[in-house]
Design a protein around this nucleic acid. Structure first.
Lengths: 168, 168
DNA sequence: CGCAATAGTATTGTGTCCAACTTATTTTTT
DNA sequence: AAAAAATAAGTTGGACACAATACTATTGCG
């Protein structure tokens, strides 16, 4: 046994984080090949997904949907506007808010994007349950490490999780 | 039922990619809080994991272990060298190769890092089986989308058949 | 020697987080 | 109501990471 360092907690192969990190980059890379045809990057594609689904939104809302900072979205949306995919217009009511909407060109892109999920799903040789399980586990992981934890009904294992990581 | 757009293949909530993307960023963010104390970023931590485990390595080997480009590692290692964590020395035999090793300070850091996996594991409210399942599924996903797909000891598909990740 | 392959670096474009800043709105205070 | 303070939405810039490309230097081969 132990052809790898099963006992070493620092062994790379034992790290869930590394598997997640690698898988994320691998999948993003796979999308990159597909999305190049559409002139989109991966996060830009995610932005389009949200806009296609929910229509015109403030930058803030977009950020909440994608868990992305407005500081991340600002230049990204500027590039997408430059590419003619989205519009950015200051709201007449509240001039702080920038409403992001899909242009006609962006709308046309939707049809070409329809096939992408299927293509990706085929590329992953995971069975449907595997995909579902994976999503469930990932969502749970995300919730737990973001402090969005719902504490379902079991006793809190330890109050050491103070929300002030910077403080000390 | 379909209280959400279960049928819409472009719906964000149906995208495995988004769950993966979000989980990866969330976990990296969680590590960021922990690693700040050690003066490491997340990919730098991964580099240290490899070096702690395998000792001095050429940049190329490091890149293979982490699936990272040397173009990514170069500046990263330069910063780590500046921080006094690693050494970079051109091989006397082959002057093209830069051997990366851990300094004493980097070695001392290892002790402080020992507790990290446990801390992270506790933060994720996943059961041990969930963690294992997740890793298996992620690895499988990675293999499938990187073309590293498949059997190490099945019938050899023959030379020249594998297009490689770059495509051809 | 000439030439291809290899290892690493430099550069550019994009993305991500963070913090500082601007502008606009809301709330509080006078 | 006017001034001041607090809050909110975006933008900007810095630091780091990642990928892709071009480039340099070294090695190996004929």
């Amino acid at each position: 046994m132990a052809d790898t360092d099963e006992g070493d907690p620092l062994a790379l192969d034992n790290q869930l984080c590394f598997a997640l990190y690698t898988a994320s980059r691998a999948l993003t890379g796979f999308y990159r090949e597909i999305l190049t045809d559409l002139g989109l990057t991966y996060p830009q594609y995610l932005v389009m997904l949200v806009l296609w689904e929910r229509g015109t939104l403030p930058v803030k809302e977009l950020g909440l949907s994608l868990s992305l900072d407005t500081g991340t979205l600002s230049p990204l949306l500027r590039r997408m506007e430059g590419a003619g995919l989205v519009t950015r217009t200051r709201g007449p009511e509240d001039e702080r808010i920038v409403h992001v909407g899909v242009t006609e060109e962006g709308e046309r892109l939707r049809e070409r994007a329809e096939e992408i999920p299927h293509r990706v799903l085929c590329a992953t040789d995971l069975p449907p349950e595997g995909v579902k399980d994976l999503r469930v586990l990932l969502d749970r992981l995300t919730r737990s490490v973001t402090g969005t934890e719902r504490e379902p009904n079991h006793t809190d294992p330890g109050p050491g999780t103070r929300p002030g990581p910077k403080g000390g």
